[in-house]
Design a protein around this nucleic acid. Structure first.
Ligand code: MN
Ligand code: MN
Ligand code: MN
Ligand code: MN
Lengths: 220, 220
DNA sequence: TAAAATAATTAGGCTTATCTAATAATTATT
DNA sequence: AATAATTATTAGATAAGCCTAATTATTTTA
């Protein structure tokens, strides 16, 4: 049985690997987890001991297959609880992360499976992130960053490349929500900034930085 | 912010006090919590330090007002989660305790309040135990003198209208104790005397004078 | 009320998860 | 390649929460 702390380290390593890094550095983990590097070195040794992490001194770490499955099961719980909080308790999608950080550590496979059924087996969480199934498989969908979108095409906002409170609040203010439909109007060749139309008809302008972080799904 | 372990100690002390003990012994707590007495002594010191427990070396402990409120808020969460697990996820009432033991430690007042609303502000959990409101007040349990009880209904003996030695000895002899479960079998219209069945299956007859002094609590 | 039994505390350890400061290893720059 | 900068590890502490064994305090019994 892993501690909540061990589970948080596994999730952190998973995130780096999911973002394409095949080896994660001690310092990067320390930063993400808000602890000192020395603490990370300690924990990586313990996780390596347990067979969840491949650790090579001073070189970097990665998840073993078992570590990967463990991480996915925690992420599954995190995202299912987020769906619960938004769909059933009426929380906003920007207020559920900290709660899910606690709920994801509740240990019970049967609870997770019953929650999944209660929620109607959702594939994506309120942020548009895929929910692994109980074998750890992620649902697929064809997505791209808004910055690479085609003029005239309609899209649905699918996922966010950043979930900082600042970014979430910015989107909220602009009327951009996960699941909302937009149309690509034009893109400025000079700075890559984009102009889009919301479903309401409102036209807004987004910087390339924002357009890079908005992951969209092509509509038919 | 209290740790899960501290919260479990507070709940344990609360339970003893709720059962009428005004001072709880170290050993009794150790037994209930499944730890050694030495560990309890340590923790009682820490909780006393924090102002949650009144601790007198070798004499016993009790909750302070703040400790009492804290305990009640954990019990509130525990029982609300139990309702959720049974009513919404379809668990049996006998399988939810261990899960609620984990869920009760999730820290968020707003989550508790939204859960409460989602569940329809229940007053009792699936085991018939009262759910404290957010000020820590317990719903009034519905009690009545046995003489006014309904035929066929099950009751728990809740309180005595007389505590004279004679009465206590009479009850003891009859096998009637506070907290014991009984079922109302019949009532004689002529003299109001009642016939009840004990949990043991034994049938006994009580005069109206006695039935007036036995305060019972309706079971589900 | 003295001895015996029971209950509680103290002393000394252990593990996990963290920290700071010092040192070492790796990578980047002249 | 040598030096500087960056990154990671080691060494030594600390706090929470637990343990066992030894000692003390309290209560019961003779
Ligand atoms: Mn989240
Ligand atoms: Mn999410
Ligand atoms: Mn329970
Ligand atoms: Mn209960």
């Amino acid at each position: 049985m892993n501690s909540a702390s061990e589970e948080n380290y596994l999730k952190a390593i998973y995130k780096f690997m999911y973002d394409g890094n095949e080896l994660v550095g001690t310092g990067a983990l320390a930063e993400m987890l808000g602890v000192q590097s020395a603490s990370v070195t300690d924990m990586l040794r313990r996780l390596s001991e347990k067979g969840l992490v491949r650790y090579t001194k001073s070189r970097g770490s990665s998840l073993t297959e078992e570590g990967m499955q463990t991480a996915l099961s925690i992420i599954r719980k995190h995202r299912l609880w987020e769906v619960f909080l938004v769909e059933k308790l009426g929380f906003g999608w920007d207020e559920v992360h900290q709660l899910a950080e606690q709920l994801e550590h509740v240990k019970s496979d049967i609870l997770t499976e019953r929650l999944d059924i209660f929620l109607g087996n959702p594939s994506f969480d309120p942020h548009g992130d895929p929910i692994p199934d109980k074998e750890g498989k992620l649902p697929q969908k064809q997505t791209l960053p808004l910055i690479a979108a085609t003029i005239g095409q309609r899209y649905k906002i699918s996922r966010l490349g950043d979930t900082s409170t600042e970014f979430l609040q910015y989107l909220d203010k602009s009327g951009l929500l996960i699941g909302s439909f937009i149309q690509m109007i034009q893109q400025e060749p000079f700075d890559q900034s984009v102009t889009i139309e919301l479903q309401s008809g409102k036209i807004i302008h987004l910087s390339s930085q924002v357009a890079e972080l908005l992951v969209v799904e092509k509509m038919e």
